[in-house]
Amino acid sequence: MATALDVPLFRPDPYRAYARLREKAPVYRDDECDFWALSRHADVSVAFRDAETFSSRNGNMLDPLLWGPDAAAFASISAIDPPRHTLVRGLVSRAFTRARLARLEPRIAEIANGHLDRALDGGEFDLVAEFTSRLPVDVIGELIGVPAADRAEIWRLECTLVDREDETDAAAAERARSMAVLTRYFADLVVERRRNPRDDLASEVVAAADADGTVTESEVLALLLVLVLAGGETTSGLIANAVDAVWRFPEARDAAYAGIDGWVEETLRFEPPFQFAGRTLTRDLTLHGVEIPEGERVLLLLASANRDGEVFDDPDRFDPTRDTSAKVTFGSGHHHCVGAQLARLEARVALREFSRRVADYEIDGAQAQRAGAAQFRDFTYLPIRVTPRPA
């Protein structure tokens, strides 16, 4: 049966709580926050593939601002089911083809090295502020068509939206204002690209939507919003978590530096920047002897599934050489993350350039600060001291 545990579910160490859930309460009910949670790999994997039973119609976020029947206005393809999902997703999926990403890689490396040039100059810096947060904003900004002068403000608004340290009414109102500002910004961008198309993703999406004739203006706007919000926050977290993981597991550094792909994939398993996804149950379901009524919100704890010892040997050890193919970080089925390959590419390039230019480093773990939102496993401050390689 569903069981209350005496361990905070998400913070400060969500993995200890996840382990207890997998063992004691694989179907867990949280009355205070009004959700059920699935924590075992087998259950999470099935749920991701069963979109008919585990619907995305109310979005995938815990935040009241982003959950409910109107979630698609902000969360786009994350908050709709097929067949509409298939149509809207098609507007952007071609932007992430293997060929297009290959053409983008040199520019990502150029951006990464520009930020590293400035950061490494002093030897000590905040990895988040100087590198991991800047790179994804610049990359997705260039891809979509956000002018460079606007990207710092876009990132500030994103940070406001995911910050959960302050749960006051004033903070909630500030988050709502930030979402309104972002919405107006991209609404104006859509109008401008329709008037003056350019060689960017915003122009492509607008043109494809206009050619289709059934895609609404609000769907176009929401699609651009979710690409920016999801692409910036999660990719920044992926890169920062990768650097932090190798510092915490120094025995893994040689393997990580020698095999960047393994470093990225193991980070996605071990410390995914997006910890869980919400779904709405479309029918009564009995699982592990627990009855979950139709209409309930269910969290798929993908970060817990990725640490399930039934699937991964010694799951709490960071090992860049392990087989991570069973991880569920990007979901599966209809809602497999559309930006997964771009996130992998950015992280691979960032870590490649970082390891090429940094011989050794130390992180001040006592001063490091994690983001406040339970759904995102990221840093807001990660002080690092580096030993650059000789030029």
Rank of each mutant, 00 (worst) to 15 (best):
A256H: 12
A366V: 07
R89I: 05
A187H: 15
A19W: 07
L268P: 13
D308T: 11
E158Q: 12
D261K: 11
P8K: 06
V228Y: 11
A180N: 11
A359Y: 00
T282W: 02
L225C: 01
V92H: 06
A326N: 01
F330I: 12
A347C: 04
D284Y: 05
P136K: 09
N196H: 07
P8W: 02
D43P: 10
E353L: 09
D188A: 15
M1G: 13
R49V: 10
R29H: 14
L143W: 01
F96R: 05
G295A: 05
A176W: 03
T168H: 14
T3G: 00
N196V: 05
R253L: 14
V181K: 12
F270E: 03
G237T: 07
H115W: 09
R184P: 00
A208V: 13
A37D: 01
A149L: 03
L201D: 03
L65K: 12
G141H: 11
D261A: 15
L65Y: 04
A173R: 08
E204Y: 04
T216Q: 07
R322Q: 02
V246R: 05
A99W: 00
V226H: 02
Y18C: 07
T267N: 11
S218H: 13
L104Q: 10
D138E: 15
A4G: 04
V46I: 13
T235H: 01
